[in-house]
Design a protein around this nucleic acid. Structure first.
Lengths: 87, 87
DNA sequence: GTGTAGACTGCTGTCGACT
DNA sequence: TAGTCGACAGCAGTCTACA
């Protein structure tokens, strides 16, 4: 298996952040200067972003890049847990 | 102008972190699973990384992705100062 | 030990259209 | 409002080789 895990983690985080601000994909696309269909691809985990793209999104969401990164990182460790001690 | 600024910022940060650990590009390439020549391209600001690449590098450098991101962000604000009020 | 170049593969990101 | 599809341009990332 190919592990597009990072794309999935990023997509989940992006969707959460967007919904927290009650933005539509369309609005976020506009604010970030990215394509609407691409935002969709990101959220469903079909694409994984470049650094430039992450910066554009963090600006549109008005959060620091480091915060975005920390959320993605957290998702990644979660998803890689053993499920041996997981409650 | 095309602003490969983020590539330059990232490259500078990467080089700094690598030197702090006294690693060669070769060693870092090996640890991260990336190509040696690509590490070089990153450091000179000729390429800008994907999320996956940033993750590989942060692991090789044994630092959180969020920390790497914060350093890049800091470089970016520095380089975007007006030089009007800059001392 | 590093920078660079050329050639190549695959994926990112855009666009229009339909569901 | 959001997911997807096909086609496309451009760039990320590899490899060999040389300075």
């Amino acid at each position: 298996m190919k592990s597009h895990k990072t794309a999935a983690a990023f997509g989940a985080v992006l969707r959460e952040l967007r919904k927290q601000q009650s933005l539509s994909q369309e609005k976020l696309a506009f604010e970030s200067g990215l394509d609407r269909t691409y935002i969709s691809l990101l959220e469903v985990g079909q694409r994984s972003p470049s650094l430039e793209t992450m910066l554009a999104l963090s600006r549109a969401l008005q959060i620091p890049l480091a915060y975005l990164a920390s959320l993605v990182e957290a998702r990644l460790v979660e998803s890689s847990d053993d499920r041996r001690n997981a409650s």
